[in-house]
């Protein structure tokens, strides 16, 4: 029984990792053909780091990711506090609308943003402003699909917080802003942080919505990867996949080690 269980777990694990393993092995393959082993090389990694398109789209992805998740955290946290302070009915309506981008298929969200920007651009063109899709449209689209997740991770923390925290701070003579910053914000900070992290990972991983809102001038890394897979099979992609896989692996190991150290410390005290 136990052997069967372990066998099943192992088989699914193999299914999940075999393709990634193949990618990693062939990223070191000197022969350009995908399947014939032609000796060990690191030249695809060299090519990757000299590829200007890859580097510039990596830069776009990271800057959009940081900007979108930081701005989304601010707007989303404020919105969550506001929603929490509303009466039940209007709050329900707001949450329903807030959920639309979460449940809608990504392709619909992407397509509807594209139409919105097409309409915007034609309005701007009518008053003589010739604008293109690019960094700003990408940023707006990314913020729009990140803010709902910030709200969804902050709201539970607000629910756990004592109902009178804000009022008590005011009664003790705090300025409303100070009351928010010193009494409310510390209580909900874990929710804000996890909202920021969710936003950042969603943003750097997003392909669908970026694909429909990026235009031709600015591309994010997933959009560049897509055009690479469309053109021809290039070993650079293998190298890129290997780097991404290893950095995620390292990050997860690091987080785990830190966590287990943390729990050990707690056990000792």
């Amino acid at each position: 029984m136990k052997a069967a269980r372990r066998g099943l777990i192992g088989a699914i694990g193999l299914f999940l990792y075999a393709p990634i393993f193949v990618l990693i092995v062939f990223s070191f393959n000197a022969s350009k053909s995908q399947m014939v082993w032609g000796g060990f090389t690191l030249s695809w990694y060299g090519d990757l780091f000299r590829d200007n398109l890859v580097l510039s789209s990596l830069y776009t992805t990271l800057s959009i990711g940081v900007l979108a998740s930081a701005l989304s955290s601010v707007i989303g946290t404020a919105a969550a506090i506001g929603f929490h302070a509303m009466r039940r009915k209007p709050r329900g309506v707001c949450l329903q609308v807030n959920n639309i981008p979460v449940v809608n298929p990504d392709i619909i969200t992407g397509v509807s943003f594209r139409l919105l920007f097409v309409v915007f651009l034609s309005l701007f063109a009518a008053i003589g402003l010739d604008l293109q899709l690019g960094f700003v449209s990408l940023l707006l689209a990314h913020m729009s699909f990140c803010i709902p997740y910030v709200i969804l991770s902050v709201l539970p923390k607000l629910g756990q917080m004592g109902a009178n925290v804000y009022e008590a701070a005011l009664d003790l003579g705090a300025h409303p802003l100070a009351a928010l910053r010193k009494a409310v914000l510390p209580e909900i900070m874990p929710g804000v942080v996890s909202g920021f992290i969710i936003s950042f990972t969603l943003s750097i991983d997003d392909f669908m919505i970026s694909y429909f809102t990026s235009g031709t001038a600015v591309q994010t890394l997933p959009v560049t990867i897509y055009s690479m897979t469309r053109k021809r099979i290039s070993p650079e992609i293998n190298a890129l996949s290997t780097i991404m896989f290893l950095s995620v692996l390292l990050l997860l190991i690091l987080v785990n080690v830190l966590q287990s150290k943390d729990t050990k410390k707690h056990k000792r005290t």
């Binding site: 919105a79 929603f83 302070a85 943003f113 919105l116 707006l140 729009s144 009022e167």
Partner: peptide, 29 residues
Amino acid sequence: MVSRRLKWLAAPYILWMGVFVVSPLVIVT
């Protein structure tokens, strides 16, 4: 009792939802 005054903090995002959530769907329709 939760302070109702804080609900104004949601105003910017409600405006945002109008532009980036509701109006795209209206335009698609």
